[in-house]
């Protein structure tokens, strides 16, 4: 793991403006920090968890092998590309990120290692860094690179970890290899969500989310937000992996 310095994370969506007193209070001294939260320094895996790493986990924890995993904790796609319970096989190279893992399984892996999944705020803070800048979220070239990756179909064989780019903090491939689970993936509430269990009665919400986002230029951040909001904890996918984090020094 490497240390990622703390910083201010401005969530994509601001907290409620139902309470004007809070609204005023929420605008930071720089005028742009509405709803910003201080993220203390933390440790983050340099690489996404690989098939070889994950094999060690399922070898030691039989309840997480493909043929044993409870339906509550993973859908039927769990480790689909693996040849069998203890053999990742040719479609899941040892040094490529493990995918087809659920939130429950990713969380269990990190716990097994004495760590946990990064929060959305931690992940976004680490992923804001380019090779040379701590915060490249206003850098058009960096944002375009992310969007270009989002626009490409996932390859059948994922590249090894460490093959995309290394950011300023020494964390590799936060963009460009796989999407990654975060601890609080289920904090992504979309106003007016089609499921209909929220948003339609916005005014009835405890702390209803405001619709205006913090950085409208960061289209890639919207895509990540939307992706997370579509996830279910049992869900697995061919380009969804994870890495672990630890509370900082």
């Amino acid at each position: 793991m490497v240390a990622v310095p703390g910083g201010r994370d401005t969530p994509l969506y601001k907290p409620s403006e139902l309470n004007p007193a809070r609204g005023a209070d929420a605008v930071g001294a720089d005028g742009a920090g509405a709803g910003a939260v201080e993220v203390p320094a933390f440790y983050l895996d340099r690489f996404a968890v690989t098939n070889a790493d994950y094999l060690a986990f399922v070898a030691a924890n039989s309840q997480w092998r493909r043929s044993n995993v409870a339906g509550l904790f993973a859908d039927t796609g769990y480790l689909r590309a693996w040849e069998n319970d203890l053999l990742p096989g040719p479609l899941a190279p040892p040094q490529s990120p493990v995918v087809h893992v659920s939130w429950f399984s990713a969380r269990a892996y990190c716990k097994w290692r004495g760590a946990r999944l990064p929060t959305t705020a931690q992940w976004e803070l680490a992923a804001a860094a380019s090779e040379t800048s701590a915060d490249a979220r206003q850098d058009p070239a960096f944002l375009q690179r992310i969007l270009n990756w989002y626009g490409q179909p996932a390859p059948e064989l994922l590249s090894p970890v460490g093959s995309v780019y290394r950011n300023l903090w020494g964390v590799h491939d936060l963009h460009g290899l796989v999407w990654e689970w975060v601890l609080d993936f289920n904090s992504a509430l979309v106003t007016g969500e089609s499921r209909g269990d929220m948003g339609l009665e916005r005014r009835l919400f405890c702390a209803a989310g405001a619709i205006d986002a913090a950085n409208a230029d960061d289209y890639a951040a919207f895509m990540r937000f939307a992706f997370r909001s579509s996830l279910d904890a049992r869900y697995t996918a061919s380009s969804l992996g994870f890495r672990c984090a630890l509370t900082g020094p």
């Binding site: 907290p15 309470n19 939260v37 289920n186 904090s187 929220m198 702390a207 209803a208 904890a233």
Partner: peptide, 21 residues
């Protein structure tokens, strides 16, 4: 919350945004 598909988020002021399920 994860197992029930409930979404929630502390707003940092003591309130939570949340699903109604």
């Amino acid at each position: 919350a994860a197992v029930l598909g409930v979404k929630y988020k502390p707003d940092g002021y003591g309130d939570f945004q949340h699903s109604n399920l």
